[in-house]
Amino acid sequence: MFDLIKGLRTTAKYLFTKPVTISYPEVKRPVRERFRGKHELKRYADGKERCIGCSLCAAACPADAIYVEPAENNPQNPVGYGERYAAKYEINMIRCIYCGYCEDACPTNAIVLEHQYELSFYDRKAAVFTKEILLQPVDKGWGEPPPILQNLNRPPNPPAQMEL
């Protein structure tokens, strides 16, 4: 009998401590900095897309969740730097295991796993996030394109020909 009371004493002690629970969804628990949540396709500061449609994220993905369909940039009105951009960029959020390898594989830091974790859908089709959903707003871009990409857009400089 005494054992029970001993246990109850502990229980009673905790009655007066502050509860550690958070009443989600009214209160949202902030995630840690390294948290891997919903993906975001980033832009450069000038609003151009970082993604060059190289499909390396799809190659790195263990779950085969990413589908990229590249297309040729229109030089007059390019979507990003270089000749290629992702015409279609889809992530199947049900397949995704949030391992973050796509982030590691991306040569232009275009895809980043951000802190959004509320991912629920009413049907399976809705779980396929298209490029429109993933893409960051135009004004939220950051950073300058690396020189290798900037160079692609400079005018051709073929070496001068020797007149023979």
Binding site: R32, R34, C99
Partner: peptide, 12 residues
């Protein structure tokens, strides 16, 4: 774990 690895359970 979330702080170091980015995920609470599937740390990777």
């Amino acid at each position: 774990f979330e702080s170091v690895g980015g995920s609470r359970m599937m740390c990777n």
